[in-house]
Design a protein around this nucleic acid. Sequence first.
DNA 1: CCGGATCCGAAAAGATACTG
DNA 2: CAGTATCTTTTCGGATCCGG
Lengths: 150, 150
Amino acid sequence: MAKVPLDRPSLANCPIAHSLSIVGDAWCLLILRDAHMGLTRFDEFRSSLGIAPSMLTKRLTTLVKEGLFKKIRYSEHPPREEYLLTPAGQDILPVLFVLGAWGQAHKLCETGARMPVFIDSETGLEIEPIVVDKITGVEIGKATIKRKKA
Amino acid sequence: MAKVPLDRPSLANCPIAHSLSIVGDAWCLLILRDAHMGLTRFDEFRSSLGIAPSMLTKRLTTLVKEGLFKKIRYSEHPPREEYLLTPAGQDILPVLFVLGAWGQAHKLCETGARMPVFIDSETGLEIEPIVVDKITGVEIGKATIKRKKA
DNA sequence: CCGGATCCGAAAAGATACTG
DNA sequence: CAGTATCTTTTCGGATCCGG
């Protein structure tokens, strides 16, 4: 899609729509996936994803502009830059978790052992992500999306 | 993007990439958002999102083919169909939750009160979604994505 | 009115080549 | 290594039409 029509009444005040206007694109989320796996450089992303350089430039530019990446010059001669996740970019991780968990649950990836797994950086153990309500701790699934009452 | 290149070694066994090859499109996720708000019909989606009919047809067709929607004929004369979420489609809800929570946390939607909120269908209370590890119950955020060791 | 199908100009994506 | 430039192909989105 070119752009989410955020002027639509149904979308104007929807946080989901606003999020999608930034990361509602498979390339963006795959770049963020790679960033969370430790990649930082243009060519690392390009060769990992097989994305055309012009596409990668465009995605990285908007992700920097939207505050998910910081562009850092790590060498002057020759000029070299790397892309580091900001806090906002790091906060995308739960989205990737849940997206991956959905794919796994529905056997989309049956060609063998799935390659990237989620590892707790403290315990080193694999994580199985679920979404719960922060207050009650109850797992989500029976909930619904509703229009807020006036 | 036309299609996620799932033949790439870096993506072939990645559940995130596989999920994105199906729902890695803003329109698809917005249609699913509307479906979770109770919309079922072609024209309901169209007028809610302002999507071109050809686009909507294409998205609905693939979502049916991928098993997120069931197409049900609810009238014979005239022939009328509606799109109902399958269990796989219902399981997308946590993805929408987390996506919305991210947008909210980063103040993407400051034009006023956000319209669709998340309501627990039992208690009627608003939900604040977070992602935790199923086993330990620890909130995710310090975790990382890693390649599985051989 | 509902659920699309078809057509067309504009826009975006993909591949490749090239440059500092 | 980090992108631009260019070219070709595909897709998008709007408008219109159409059968029930």
